[in-house]
Every structure is written in structure tokens, then in C-alpha cells.
Write a protein that binds this DNA or RNA. Structure first.
Lengths: 338, 338
DNA sequence: CCTGATGACTTAAGCGCTTAAGAATCCTTC
DNA sequence: GAAGGATTCTTAAGCGCTTAAGTCATCAGG
């Protein structure tokens, strides 16, 4: 029941382990005949290389790391990560690379986890999500020279490749849509202000609204949670000149808004249009179903894995953009009340 | 910029690498003085053991595997896994053990992934979720003698330890609650019939209903998805003597029911009471908020990690039961119409 | 003072694989 | 027919760590 090693293959084939290694790795130095014999034996006894051994000599861990920094209870409802991970996997499994997942409480713990993971040589590279405007992980990645790919737009403060989607364009499209419906007072409930993409979206939103000559729009910042979505919506709807449309930075908060509106007697979509910043089953589950910015998260994961693999192999892939989100119109948006 | 090794520590401390190894592992054979010196140096140069090297000699990978078999798009909305993983991590990180996550399409692929993962010596053990009544993974685990823990009740077909929650008791409690409210026609929308816990819950449900002298109850089987939740609800509500209460096997389907009911003009909870089988933010997000069976998934993860660690260390921990789900009453249940 | 135990190390083998360097064989080529 | 070059292997070192076995003081007991 011992797991077979190349030594066993070598013994059976009557050659040295060196020859076996060459054969199995498709390198020159063995005749076609011998190679076939070795491969056949390996196949027969079900041999698989020990990652530990390969890592030790080849100095490759054959794994990549993903560290998610979120308080545990916020996790789960956000469908983003599971989709993204599924995408990563789809690409990684073909490359015989494993995904090491870590869930930690906060940014600080994430950096510690990163350092540890790297020091223990557990991974060859890392996927960095939830980028902050000022992100303390970047200098650490550079200091330790960790191959990594940023899930977010390319940054001036690093050479690290990024995989990104044109958030700005998507936000602009949504604003254009609302304006075309006749809305003049459009507000935004943004996510964590420390996150880079939050800022990008806010900026795009402002520009779009100003571009339509609608004056400085209102933007409320939150932490992406259900609770803050409720709070923000309440704040916005309690004002005198309350907005006729609100764009939310994710689907969870948009759902929260639905409840607040009901509670406050604000009809949706007749008195208030709502756009969710992420699309997921959640948007279809609620009534009215939510108009949302929909993007292919799994494809995002696939691309990310590819760029990371290239980075690890020193093929410096450069940043890559994936398709822009598209607006899926459902029942939560319509023209504003006369 | 090279990562430090024990050889460097040995050189600096003026001792052999053997001594360093003993000191760092807290084993006898070095004086307190020398030990302190070594530890200080290790700390100073930021040494961390290379997992690869430890794995090779110690024959421990210091990782455990979790393989999730779900079509990618079903993933995400179900908050279960993220919570569960967060629980696993909380326990594992303290044990310097990493979590290797794999997401595959189906059961068959899961078995392949298991075999590969084990053959490559990537993990020391595995967490097995979504157990089937007849589960092809069990014989494989036994054949390869893979340490594993089953997330589900102990089984007669294996010695593998299980971490489980008393699903039956929870279901019975929910039925009792509905009966106490006055319901006499209670139906159940169950999850995947191939899954073991689905069967357990169905059996408990039947028994409870029969025990109250309410006759054979109606049970519809589904795949846990939103779509089938809709379909099942439609089926149940289109009958002549339609149920006055329905218990769903998860939160997603219960949410779907809310929509179907609205669509069919069935008032909730006045004309139909709904109980969700899982609790999550989702249950609070919808209107009316859903009465649900709530259980501490994170704690489940923690216990699972513990039992797995013990299994790996050969401390044959035996199965462990975690706290039973409790019924959280919200707005979706009330007495049946007169 | 010698014996035997104990403590504090060192030595060296080994985990399973990669890979540079060496050896043996065969084929060219002038 | 000898030198040079391929081709096909073997040898052995090394990756960073663990650990059984060996060495050498030191010290208590008789």
C-alpha cells in the first residue's frame, strides 16, 4: 500500500532513477523505447510525483495562494468568491497546481498569512484581491519578490500584472441608462472607501452624472454589508429632495434597500429605481427583481489564474482586461415619478 | 534575499544542523542555553521551516483537502461553504495546516481529484462533505487509507469518524412548532435525494408528521436549486388540498417559494407558512423574513477540522456531534387560515 | 579510581525527486 | 582506423529537514 516512487519504476524498468526522471519529464536523454517502457510502468503502478520532493529539488511548490480578508460572517452571502474560485480552479487544475485558500479576519492578518505562506514555501505565487488604494501588501510582495497578480486595475506603484475589468465604463453605462429613463437625482451607495475599485467607481459615477449636467451627486460610503446598505438607504430616502434612483455597489446592499423602501412606504420601481452593482441569483430572488451590472466572474477567475501562471513561469504576461460588465435590466428600474 | 535555512542558523550558532532541528522542534537533546540561542537566531533571521522539506522527511504534507463537487453556477448563493471554510481555517491555521480547496463539476471528478491529491502527497487528510447514501468516495478512502472526516452522520459502511448535527431533531422541532400553530397539512420540499442527510431529514419529517396523526405527508425532491424550489412550490400549491405549511431543505428554495406564492396570489404567512432549512442573511433579506432552522456552520467547520487533525495524528477521535439547529421564528410562519 | 548513566551534542542516512557531469556505446568522417 | 560527435544512459550531489545511532564529557555511586 506504499505509494510508488520513481525508484520502483527504475527497478522494474532496469534503469537508473535518473533515466526515469528524464523520461517522465519528457526531457531528452532516453531512447523512445525506454521512455515508453518507463511511462507504461509508471502508468501501470499508478505513479504520481510527490509534490514535496519536486518542490524541494525543483523549488516549485505547485500551488498558489488566495487569502481572503473578511470577517467570517460577512462571507458567504457574497457570491463573488465562490464563483471566482471556481474560475481559478478551472484553469489551475489543468496545470496541476493546487489552490491554497486562507480566510483571515483583516488586512493585517492577511499580510502575516502571506509572509508565512511564502516563508514556508507553500506557494509559488498569490492572487491578490480587494486591493486598497494604499495597499500595504504591495510593498511586501515586492520586498519578498513574490509572483502575484492583482485582481483590479494596473497600478502605478508596482510592476505586478493586473487582471481587471472596466468598472468605470460599466458604471457610466448604468448612469446613462438611468438618465435616459429620465432620472435627474441619482445617488450612489458605494462600498468600502479604502478599496481601489470603490474609488474608481465613485469617480466614474461622479463624472458621468456631472457630464449629464446634473450637478454634484450624492455618494454614501459603506462596508458593503447588509446593515450599512440599510442605513445608507434610509439616509438617502429621508432627505427632502430624495433621489429617484440609487446605484448600489453590490447586490446585498441593493437587496437591503428593497426592504428599507418597503418599510418606508417607497414604491419600487415607481418611486425609486434601484441598480445593483453585482449580479447574482440574489437579484432574481427578490421582488422586484433587481436591475444589475452583470459580469462574468468565473471568466475573471480563469484569466487571473492564467496571468498568475505566466508570472510564475517568468513569462511576464502584463496586465489583462476582461470583458466589461453589462447592464441586465429587470424590474427594479423605470422612469422616475412625474 | 535567499530564504534562510536551518543550515544558516547552525552556522551562526556554531552547532550542527541536527542540534538546530532538535531545538526548533522542542525535542530533548539540547541545553536550555543553546536552545534559546538557536530560537533567538531563528527568530532574528525570520526562519520558517520549508513545508516541502518537512513533508519529505516527516512524511506529512501539513495540508488538508476539501473537494467541493458542484456545478460552478450553483455555487456562491449557498452561503454554507464559505462559512464552513471559515470555520475550518480558524482551527487549521493554529495548527499550521493549510487548506487545499478544489472545486470540481461532479462526484466522479471529485473522486479523481481525491486520488490525485493523495497520490501526489499533497494532503494529510480530507474533509468529505455532501455525503451520498451510497457514496463511492468511501471505498476509495478506505482502499487508499486516507485519513478523512465525514461531514454528516456516522455510517455503518465505514470506520471513518463523522462530525454531525442532529438533523432529525431539528426537523422534528420544526414540525412540532407548525403543528402547535395548528397546521395539519404540512409538506416538505427536500433536497437532492442521493444525499444522505436529505434522507435522514425526510424520514424524520415523515415520522414527526405521522406521529401527530396527520397521515402520510407530501414530500417533493429537488436538487436544492432556486429553479426546482420554484417548480416544487408550484406543484404543491396547485393541488386541491394544498398544504398550509411547507418546509424547505435550504434557504434558497424557501426564497423561491416566496416568489411563487406572490405570483400565485397566496399570502405569506396568512395562507401559507414557510420554514427554511438553512439560515443565512438571505432569510433576513427577503420579505417576509423567513423562519428558519439555524445552525452554527462555522462551529461545524471548527469541529470538523479538529476531528480531522486528530484522525491524522492517529488519535482516533471517534465521531462528534455538534449542536442541533434551533428554530428561528420570523415572519413567514403563523397559524393556518381558519 | 573505575563503571555506568546521563546529558549535550555530532554524524550521517534518508525522504523522492532533479540535474550537472561523467561513462559507455555507436556512428560519422577524413 | 583514429578522432570527434551524438546518443543513451549512470553517478552522485543536492534540495531542507528529521532522526536513529554514535561520540564525548561530566558526574554519581560503589
Amino acid at each position: 500500500m506504499k505509494r510508488p516512487t520513481i525508484a520502483e519504476i527504475a527497478a522494474r524498468a532496469g534503469v537508473s532513477i535518473g533515466a526515469v526522471s528524464y523520461a517522465l519529464n519528457g526531457r531528452p536523454g532516453v531512447s523512445a523505447e525506454t521512455r515508453k517502457l518507463i511511462l507504461d510502468i509508471a502508468d501501470e503502478i499508478g505513479w504520481r510525483p510527490s509534490v514535496a520532493a519536486r518542490s524541494l529539488s525543483g523549488s516549485r511548490a505547485h500551488s498558489v495562494g488566495l487569502i481572503i480578508a473578511r470577517p467570517a460572517d460577512t462571507l458567504g452571502v457574497e457570491p463573488f468568491f465562490m464563483r471566482f474560485i471556481a474560475g481559478l480552479e478551472r484553469e489551475l487544475s489543468g496545470r496541476r497546481t493546487a489552490l491554497l485558500l486562507q480566510v483571515v479576519e483583516d488586512h493585517h492578518a492577511a499580510i502575516e498569512a502571506m509572509r508565512l505562506c511564502w516563508a514556508e514555501r507553500r506557494v509559488d505565487g498569490m492572487v491578490i484581491t480587494d486591493l486598497w488604494t494604499e495597499d500595504a501588501r504591495i510593498p511586501v510582495l515586492e520586498e519578498l519578490q513574490i509572483p502575484a497578480v492583482l485582481v483590479g486595475r494596473p497600478r502605478p506603484d508596482t510592476e505586478l500584472p493586473a487582471v481587471w475589468t472596466d468598472d468605470a465604463a460599466a458604471v457610466v453605462a448604468a448612469v446613462d441608462y438611468l438618465v435616459a429613463l429620465g432620472h435627474r437625482r441619482i445617488a450612489r451607495v458605494a462600498g468600502l472607501p479604502a478599496l481601489e475599485h470603490t474609488q474608481v467607481r465613485i469617480a466614474a459615477f461622479r463624472q458621468a452624472v456631472l457630464g449629464h449636467g446634473l450637478g454634484e451627486p450624492q455618494v454614501v460610503e459603506t462596508d458593503y454589508s447588509w446593515e450599512e446598505g440599510m442605513r445608507a438607504t434610509r439616509t438617502l430616502l429621508s432627505q427632502r429632495d430624495r433621489p429617484t434612483a440609487i446605484m448600489f455597489d453590490n447586490d446585498v446592499m441593493a437587496t437591503a434597500a428593497l426592504n428599507v423602501a418597503q418599510e418606508m412606504g417607497v414604491a419600487i420601481p415607481d418611486e425609486l429605481s434601484i441598480v445593483a452593482g453585482d449580479d447574482s441569483q440574489l437579484c432574481v430572488m427578490v421582488r422586484p427583481a433587481l436591475t444589475a451590472l452583470s459580469w462574468d466572474i468565473q471568466a475573471y477567475g480563469v484569466q487571473t489564474a492564467r496571468v498568475l501562471a505566466d508570472t510564475i513561469d517568468d513569462r511576464s504576461p502584463g496586465s489583462r482586461q476582461v470583458s466589461t460588465a453589462s447592464l441586465v435590466v429587470r424590474a427594479s428600474t423605470t422612469s422616475p415619478p412625474a
